[in-house]
Amino acid sequence: MKYKFISLVLIMALSFQCLIKIGLISYYSINIEYIIAELCENKDKPELKCNGKCYLKKKMGEADKAEKQTTGIFKQIEFPVFIPHVHLSIDPEYILIENTIPELKNLYTHTLNNKIFHPPLV
């Protein structure tokens, strides 16, 4: 149960990074008139035909910086690649480790047929 919660949180955190940029682009496309009128940095230079793209570029740069910071954090954390299925039974005198993985049985059989391995008859 604990591993499912941790994996769900990590998946949500990684997908949230991708959704930030999609959210910024959708916010820009929905509120383009407001961004051009109020938030654009090049309002005094209409010959650039910026149309608020300077604001979008600035916000995307901030999102990239935040993404680089979080990837730096994830590089510092070491995640185990393999988590064995082992149950610990704690007893006051000793600790007993029980392996819950059953033994693998060899269910493969092989028969060799030599009749097909001969030169062709002419």
Rank of each mutant, 00 (worst) to 15 (best):
I73Y: 07
F16N: 08
E62S: 07
L104Y: 14
L107V: 08
L39Q: 13
H118E: 12
C18N: 10
K21L: 12
I11G: 10
S15P: 00
K58E: 03
D64V: 06
Y27T: 04
K65G: 08
K21E: 15
E33T: 11
V122N: 11
C50K: 01
P102I: 01
L107T: 12
S29D: 15
S7Q: 09
N42D: 03
L8Q: 13
F74M: 10
K45A: 06
S7K: 13
N51T: 01
E62F: 02
M1H: 09
L8W: 08
Q69P: 07
E93H: 04
L24I: 04
Q17F: 07
E38R: 08
F79P: 09
F74D: 09
K105Y: 06
L107M: 11
L112G: 07
I77R: 02
V122M: 08
F5S: 11
L121G: 05
F5H: 11
I101D: 14
K115L: 05
C54Y: 03
K49P: 02
Q17S: 12
G52C: 01
E33Q: 12
I77H: 04
N31T: 03
M60S: 14
I73T: 05
L121F: 05
G72S: 10
N99P: 00
L10N: 02
H110I: 12
A13H: 01
P120W: 03
T111R: 04
H118W: 00
I83E: 01
E98T: 07
E103V: 08
S7E: 12
K53D: 09
K43W: 04
Y108Q: 13
Q17Y: 03
I36Y: 07
E78P: 13
L88P: 02
E78D: 15
F82V: 15
F74I: 05
E38M: 00
P80D: 05
E93W: 00
Q69N: 14
K53F: 03
L56N: 05
L107N: 15
T109C: 02
E103M: 09
I6Y: 02
D91F: 00
P120Y: 03
P102C: 01
L56V: 02
L56F: 04
H110T: 14
L8G: 15
E98V: 05
K53G: 10
V81F: 06
I73W: 00
Y55R: 12
S15K: 04
K45S: 14
A37I: 02
D91H: 07
